[in-house]
Design a protein around this nucleic acid. Sequence first.
DNA 1: CAGTGGTCTAGACCACGAT
DNA 2: TCGTGGTCTAGACCACTGG
Lengths: 233, 233
Amino acid sequence: MSSSFDDIKAHIQLLIGNDRLGANHKLPAERELAEQLRITRITLRDGLNRLEGEGLVYRQNRRGWFVAPNRFVMNPAKKVNFNSMAREQSFLPTTKVLGFRKLSVRRDIYSAFAVTKSTKFFEMRRVRYLDQRAVMVEESYLPAERFSGLSDFDLSESVTEILRHNYAVNINREHCNIQVANLELLCAEPLGIPAGAPSLKITRLRYDSSGYLIDYNIEYWLPHAIEMEVATQ
Amino acid sequence: MSSSFDDIKAHIQLLIGNDRLGANHKLPAERELAEQLRITRITLRDGLNRLEGEGLVYRQNRRGWFVAPNRFVMNPAKKVNFNSMAREQSFLPTTKVLGFRKLSVRRDIYSAFAVTKSTKFFEMRRVRYLDQRAVMVEESYLPAERFSGLSDFDLSESVTEILRHNYAVNINREHCNIQVANLELLCAEPLGIPAGAPSLKITRLRYDSSGYLIDYNIEYWLPHAIEMEVATQ
DNA sequence: CAGTGGTCTAGACCACGAT
DNA sequence: TCGTGGTCTAGACCACTGG
């Protein structure tokens, strides 16, 4: 592949450059690209996968390949509001709520909250878009009793803001785990990529000023759509 | 692939379970596995790549597939010493110095240090091993004048410790960037994986108590060999 | 040197997206 | 429905690893 990879890369860059294709513009069909380069589709796809890793292109399930935009820069310390961060970086942010329900158990959740099995939680699943492109799926768990009536609010807005304004909750401290992990079907589907594809998985435990865990939050990002900035001291 | 993937996963798990293969144990050859499963090598390799993403196995260039050990947990706030962190997690850490030289320019470096083009830097490249397995390549840049004589010390040890003991430098603050990025050949080779493979790239700018940048540090991790823990406030 | 992984060719069928 | 991407088969050659 390494021999043809350079050819593939040069060819794609030429296509993007010549036709002045902007971010999120669709590339020609795989079969057409393969023919242009006189290589097999498999070889071409190996190359495209690698180009995806270099942040030049990205894929959408059965829709094709597109020109990749810049990465979204996330600062978990500042991240009060996804929407405002996105707009600062000239993205158009959108959010879709996939589901909201009350449930009573999930081992990893209640152990983190240090509560009993019978405690009820809200589970919320959302997709985040930047310029119409799905880049992240988010799962949130919050103690139901403390935040009763939560679903009455517009959940496509910042939950942090909702909590602050309506429940007098301020996030004071947060603990963050970052790893590369494969996507289950449930998360892969909304992102428009096949199950088993890698993601950057960011798990956050957010505490209020009394030290209570407020929000157990898991974000699955398209790995090349994001970079993180963290300041430690 | 998704149909055969489950078969492949079950088969590999069975192999590992039945033969009680421990971490870093080699799996049978690809051709043999493919025959056992009655599938093509290409299909098998797709499956193995995905299993690698799930952290079950890992690859080494032209040597084969191995049973993956647990992830190394890194806390950049605590990370004074790779070796001690590794031993706390029951790994045997090793370090090899790939190169050490003095150089004068690299745009991204001197702009971060906010110095002139003529300033000299030490560039150091090291590989880190856990239980004999190469998991990370590190590039460090330090201002040469301030740390003259640095190469006289044992550079396979913690540089932070060397700086503290011999140059009276204490790291006070650090800025960290985390992203998934492809490996150039120079970094892929010591890790025993093909160029173009993804990595977790951690860039750290470390400052002393006077606010001077001491260390410009880039780490390229095998993506499934590590997870990060970060506490923010 | 033999065996193995890395890469590639030349086809094929199916399931889903767009229309 | 047509074209596309997702997946798979059945080979092949080369470069490197390991004995």
